[in-house]
Every structure is written in C-alpha cells, then in structure tokens.
Simulated scan of single mutants.
Amino acid sequence: MNPRILILTNMGPKASAPFQGQFVRTQMQALSELMPVLYFYMSWHSDSRLNRLLKYPVLFLQFVWRYVLSRHKLDLLHVHFFYPTIFLAIFYKLVRNPRVKIMVTCHGSDIYYYEPFSTLYRWSCGWVDQWLYSSEKLKQRAWQAPDDAPVISAGIDATFAQTEFLSREQKDIDLLYVGALDQNKGMDRLIRLLPALADYKVALVGKGPYQTRIEQAIQLYPNVQLLGPKSSNELKVLYQRARCFLSLSRNESFGLVMTEAMACYTPVIATETDGSMQQLADRPEWLIPQQTEAELDALFPEKIQQLLSLPDSDYQALQQVGREQAQACIVSEVALQVQRIYQQVLGKNE
C-alpha cells in the first residue's frame, strides 16, 4: 500500500497576489507525477481585516475536518513554511497518529520574521523529523539545522526547461522585475531609482501593496511599464526579451524569479541576500551590498550600465553560465530529490 503523504502550506493565492504559493503547488504537481500525494493549502485568503483575523482558525478547522477526522491515517506531513503551519502537523501527531513523520521545508520568512526565536518557536522545532532549506545561508540562520539537512530549491516550473536563446541585440526590454510589489522586495528602492533609469526600457511584473505608489511614480516615466501578474508561459517570453533582471530584495532565501530569468538566458543584478549570494556566488560583481541605501542607489545604475555595455562575448558567457546553473532547479529534478527524501524518512518507520 502506498504511504499517504500530505503537503501542507499556509500559502495560497489571493486577489492581490494570485500566484502566491505557486512554487509549492508546482512542486506538488511534479511530485504527483512520481507518486500519490495530497495537498492542503490556505484556500480562504484575502486582504480583508476579517480574513487577517480569522484565516488561521479557519485553516485549522478545515485541516481537522479533512484529515484529523478522516478514517485514513497520514504517514508523512510535509510542511512548507515552518511557522506557524507546524502547529497543524503537531496537532495531527498528538491526536490522530503519533507515528506520523513530519518534514519541513523552510523558505525564508518562516525564519527571518521570527528572529530572535521565541520559546514556542524553539519548542515546535523539536517535533520535526526532517528539515529542508531553500538555501545554505538560510540553513545557517535557522535555530535548529542538522548538518545533514538537505538544501534544495523549491523548483522552477517545467515551462523553463526549454527556452529560446536571444542575443542581447535581439532583446527589446532593458530591465525586468518580477515579483510582489512590496517593501521586502524593494519597491521603495525601485521608485527612488526611476530617475536614473530614464534611458532604459523597464518592465515590472507583479502585484502588491506598493502598486498604487508605483502607478503614480511611473506617470512621469513613459519608459516604464507595469504589466501586472503573469503566468509561467507569459513570464518565459518576458524573461527571454529582457537584457537584465533586477532583484532589489531586502530578504530573499533563494529567489526563484532570479532562477527563472537565468533559465531564459537573462543575466541578473541583485542585492546581497541569502538567495542571491548563493545563486551568484561565482559572479559577485553583480551583487549590490545593502549596507546603506545611498550606496545601493548609486551602485544599481552603475552596475546596470556596466552589464549592458559588456562585450558581446562576455555577455553571452553570463547568459550561458546562468542557464546551466538554472537547469538543476527545474522542478522535475527537484521532485526526484524530494521523493528520495520521502522514501528515506518513511523508511525510518520500518
């Protein structure tokens, strides 16, 4: 009999972020092609005050109804985003199946946002049988990180397995940003940079709390387009068209949009975060320190001009290196790694 495995997450799409949690769903779909898996996510999700107040109680009640009260026991709970989603898994182990294995993938905010770690957070860590981390730097910041805990990318969509190489001259977008339009992703920084980017064609993809401020700011800059959320297929086309991808994040445990850009032969300039330092470790000249905002404001335009002025051979070398690196993060490859870990964790029951 196949083991019953549930992937659960506190992430889910909402009107202001229709692709939120998409990378968890993408990994789940890839795993489902290899083995039977169940999926539970935050389906009642919005920006309303009522939702912010009640979304976790509702998530808990939905979980109890579907899985705790089910006559079928789960063998493994794979939690994406450790805290506070872990409480669902702990509750299941306490009241339904004490033999269930708990595996956790940490993505970033489930560690960054809880430092320094509370007593309850540390207590919750003791229930985990297997940890996974989305970057080595994130693992180093975790409260409890066994040396043998794997570091595995969440995986980029299979859409990016086959992409078209375009030379710099064939591309028609100078600078591309993809992601949430919020403070952590550096949208205040982007607004400040707009005067220095006036000579470039800029495309912004995403949605979020900074949208109104960005819409107002770009009224003075006809070179900037705000395109809204896009599907993986639409993103693939935009990445391929871009000469440079920008990441302005304050915290980023891995940064799958950087990986997607590199998969489409687009070089990346990024602020120094856990994710960018891992992905650009052999290209540190394209990392921007976050020591001061003034330094960041000066360095971004300088690095952009430097990248877009590289000799063709050097630019093409960056394209190829990025593509080769990103291929290891295609979700089908990641799913195979996760499947092997499931088998190892479940084997401990025998």
Rank of each mutant, 00 (worst) to 15 (best):
L220W: 15
A198I: 11
F160H: 07
D174N: 03
M187A: 09
G228D: 04
L193A: 05
R141K: 15
T212F: 12
A217K: 02
L220D: 14
N223G: 12
L238P: 08
A196I: 03
I152V: 15
K236D: 10
L204D: 00
D188H: 12
D148S: 13
L220P: 13
D147T: 15
Y200C: 05
Y177M: 05
A149S: 14
Y210M: 08
G206Q: 08
V178K: 01
L138Q: 09
R168Q: 07
Q183L: 11
Y112I: 05
A154D: 05
L235N: 03
Q225E: 13
D110E: 05
K201H: 14
Y113T: 02
L226H: 10
I152T: 13
T163H: 03
C125T: 04
K236P: 09
V202W: 09
K207S: 15
D129P: 10
L220T: 15
V202L: 12
K185Q: 03
A198M: 09
K230G: 05
Q219A: 13
D129M: 13
A161W: 14
S134C: 13
K201N: 09
Q211Y: 09
A142S: 14
R141Q: 14
I111N: 00
K139G: 15
L226W: 14
P209T: 07
L175T: 10
S134P: 09
R122V: 09
A180P: 03
G228I: 11
L227T: 03
A198H: 13
Y133K: 12
E115K: 12
A154T: 03
S231F: 01
G206K: 06
R168H: 04
Q130T: 14
L176G: 03
S232Y: 11
R213E: 10
E215H: 11
L204H: 03
L238V: 02
W127E: 00
P222A: 07
D188I: 02
V151M: 07
P150N: 04
D182W: 06
K139Y: 00
F160V: 06
V178D: 11
T159Q: 11
S134K: 08
K230C: 02
Q162G: 10
A180G: 08
Q225M: 11
I156N: 09
